[in-house]
Amino acid sequence: MTQTRQTPAASRLFEPARLGGLELSSRLVMAPLTRNRAGADGVPGELMATHYAQRASAGLIIAEGTTPNAVGQTYPHIPGIHTPAQIAGWRRVTDAVRAAGGRMFLQLQHGGRVGHPDTSGHVPLAPSAVRFPEPLQTPGGPREGVTPRVMAEEDVRSTIADFAGAARNAVEAGFDGVEVHSANGHLLHQFLAGNTNLRTDAWGGSVANRIRFPVEVVRAVAEAVGPERVGVRISPGTNVNGVREEDTELLYPALVAALAEVGPAYLHQVHSDPDQPLFAEIRGAWPGTLIANPRLSHEELAADAGLLKGERLLAAGADLVALGRGFLANPDLVERLRTGAPLNALRPEFLMHVQGAEGYNDYPALAPAPAPA
């Protein structure tokens, strides 16, 4: 089933762009999206290589959240980047994407308290002993969250080192760079938020202390692979996975200023809204490339609201626009948006916690245009 759209006017979204030393074919980015299609050992297989190669026409692909170490695993069948087999699996993916003309970063995601011993084999680590408040998917089905182990200074330092090692592994696997996930209630965001960071040492309490761990992770990653290969994802005011921010307006200007001193290639803001003062403040404080990820349903995208929101974000100072679910159902989303072609309807029952090609690699692309007579 497809969803009919109007033919759009010319849009800056389809113009070529630069990201550091990379030439991008358009300003449209495929956002990282968890799909649970890796092996039980976190190794990407041919299923994932096919999926990402199908979507190589995106200006940039940011691959799904991938764990930098075993304890950071969130759900079953989440990919990792900390074993030789995982590196080799991702190399098959990046080879396929590169052969199709694509550019690709890998998101590094540590779940922190968003994890379960039944999945990872480890008690999760977190800034404080605050249990995840919802059931978590495990290989045996949904399970209540467990109280995480509080990260000692040694755990903090070793986790920072694991992020740096994962970044080196990603470059070895053929990625153009990595995105450090400091959003959506995962470990780095847990250090930022007051309800999940109850520490009274140098890693908690004041804003300056709470931003310290994310900044040190980004610094270590930038030193490992070069700042031009590094991006950072943030989600100001996005209270998901049990995280609650009460000082967003103070927290993010301080975080962005500290990250700017490290100098990563881009900042990726979730749920960007050009009408919100914080978006303008972040844009003014951030000297590098800004990727804006609007809050957008598949239905809005099909009705061309996505193009309108994307244009407004570019006008408000964004350099690139990241879309998520539209790329899931449409391997050739950029071409469909550019030409006004109808979009495939999304099948949400196949989004997460299922395996196989159905609802993953079987969305049709547009038929190629006939050759001229």
Results as ranks from 00 to 15, higher is better:
230 V>P: 01
232 V>H: 01
340 G>R: 07
240 V>I: 14
132 F>Q: 12
252 Y>D: 08
66 T>R: 11
227 P>R: 14
355 Q>W: 02
329 A>G: 08
221 V>A: 04
148 P>L: 03
244 R>A: 14
195 N>W: 06
44 P>M: 09
265 A>C: 10
56 A>F: 12
40 A>R: 15
87 I>C: 02
216 E>A: 14
153 E>A: 15
248 T>V: 14
90 W>K: 06
354 V>A: 05
264 P>K: 03
222 A>E: 08
298 H>N: 11
51 H>G: 06
298 H>F: 12
275 D>A: 15
118 D>R: 15
332 D>S: 03
77 H>G: 01
318 A>Y: 11
243 V>C: 05
257 A>W: 03
183 A>I: 07
115 G>Y: 10
73 Q>Y: 03
291 I>M: 07
24 L>M: 07
255 L>E: 01
243 V>M: 12
123 V>G: 04
305 A>Y: 12
262 V>T: 12
152 A>V: 14
320 L>E: 07
346 L>Y: 14
134 E>C: 02
95 D>F: 00
85 A>C: 03
19 L>N: 00
128 S>E: 08
270 V>G: 00
272 S>N: 01
366 L>E: 13
373 A>P: 15
116 H>V: 11
326 G>L: 06
300 E>A: 09
361 N>G: 11
194 G>L: 11
45 G>E: 10
198 L>T: 13
130 V>T: 03
327 F>N: 03
54 Q>W: 03
94 T>I: 00
37 R>G: 07
358 E>V: 14
296 L>S: 06
111 G>A: 07
169 N>L: 04
323 L>Q: 09
293 N>I: 00
233 R>T: 10
230 V>Q: 07
40 A>W: 05
149 R>P: 04
334 V>N: 08
279 F>G: 02
327 F>M: 04
283 R>S: 06
51 H>C: 11
251 L>C: 05
325 R>W: 02
105 F>H: 04
311 E>G: 09
151 M>R: 06
303 A>R: 14
267 L>Q: 05
228 E>R: 13
183 A>N: 07
79 P>I: 01
309 K>P: 09
162 D>A: 15
16 P>G: 00
320 L>G: 01
35 R>I: 05
338 R>M: 04
244 R>S: 09
52 Y>G: 11
